[in-house]
Simulated scan of single mutants.
Amino acid sequence: MAEFQIRRDDLTTIRVVDTGNSEQDFTLDEGEILVKIEHFAFTANNITYGAVGDQIGYWKFFPPSDDNGEIWGILPVWGFADVVSSSSEEIPVGERLYGYFPTSHYLKLKPAMVKGETFFDASEHRSTLPPGYNMYRRVRAEKTYDPSMEHERSLLFPLHLTSFCIWDALQDANWHGVEQILILSASSKTSIGLAYALAEDDNAPSIIGVTSNRNCEYVENLKLYNGTVSYDDLSSIEDIPTVIVDMSGNKQLLASLHNQLGDNMKYTINVGMTHWEDFQNDAEGIIANRSEFFFAPGHIQKRIADWGPAEFNKRSGTFMYKAALKSKDWLSCTVANGLESLQEHFKDVSKGNFAPDQGLIIKL
């Protein structure tokens, strides 16, 4: 067994650690299961987990097996796994699961609140963490489960769930009374998911994709945005009441837009960090009192309380499945074998060098 680890204080330093464990070395307490992770997606979103790991608790999900000094961490990823050993009466060997996993070969879980299609991990160290990340789906019990969509599901469902929640929050706030929505890092998969939702909403304001010069043609060809602007041409953005949805995390870029729009910058939603290196850099001019960090699990809990779990799953699940099907037209998956291959691709993903129409799947 091996683990892909990253330094918590330096997200450019990585290593693969051989823990020396095999499947037979794991012992299970009553009610526990052991899963073997089969494949997972790795995107810039996973780097975001590391950038805000201490603030939100992402480092707590999967502590490294050999690090007591909290120097190293394991980034959570979304993917598929099979149950290979079980002391649970409710989850048998052979179950296939979709959910939140570490970048390693095996994981012990303690299923609770087991239902036909889902259960929650009740491991003590995860008890205070957001419930949405502790839920696992028993995919073979799902009516809509399609094995041929597993790569798209691993890559896009976590991102498009955030997209769905942002759209829902915006329309619930009546778009903050604006005439346009700027989406920064418009080529990112979360941005494209949000654009899918906004483009289908007849009440939504005009949506403008803001991206790098090299991605402008790609964003325009998606035919989802009402306009496309490069980072080098911000002055062309119309000075009208505006919401900014920032997927980039580039504070200098954000400060420039806040200064440029002034009173017409009605609200900024900070979501991702495709430019995560700039996240901790301070920038003068950001209007903090009209900005919020968007935490999707918090919005999910709100809507589950409003709608009930079944209705939330129905609405969000329908959107994510439709969005993934649309994305098949442009998304190409690179499948790489082993944690060592993640080492090889890590720099390109973290530096934003992975083409926007590409997705990385790590198969173990």
Score class of each variant (00 low, 15 high):
Phe4Trp: 02
Arg7His: 08
Thr13Tyr: 02
Thr19Trp: 06
Ser22Arg: 11
Ser22Ala: 12
Thr27Phe: 08
Phe62Glu: 05
Phe62Val: 05
Asp66Gly: 01
Ile71Asn: 09
Leu75Glu: 08
Val77Tyr: 02
Trp78His: 07
Trp78Lys: 01
Phe80Ile: 06
Glu90Gln: 15
Glu90Met: 13
Glu95Met: 11
Leu97Arg: 03
Gly99Thr: 02
Leu109Lys: 04
Ala122Asp: 15
His125Thr: 02
Arg126Lys: 15
Met135Ile: 08
Ala141Gly: 01
Lys143His: 06
Leu156Gly: 07
Leu170Val: 06
Ile183Ser: 06
Ser188Glu: 08
Ala195Gln: 07
Cys216Lys: 15
Glu217Leu: 05
Glu217Arg: 05
Tyr218Phe: 15
Glu220Val: 04
Lys223Gln: 15
Leu234Glu: 09
Glu238Lys: 11
Pro241Val: 10
Ser248Val: 10
Gln260Gly: 05
Gln260Lys: 14
Met265Cys: 14
Lys266Glu: 02
Asn270Asp: 03
Asn270Ser: 13
Gly272His: 04
Glu277Phe: 01
Asn281Ile: 11
Ala288Met: 14
Ser291Pro: 05
Asp306Ser: 09
Asn313Asp: 11
Lys314Pro: 06
Phe319His: 12
Tyr321Asn: 07
Ala323Tyr: 03
Lys328Gly: 05
Leu331Glu: 00
Ser332Gln: 13
His345Lys: 15
His345Asn: 15
Ala355Gln: 12
Gln358Arg: 12
Leu360Glu: 10
Leu360Tyr: 09
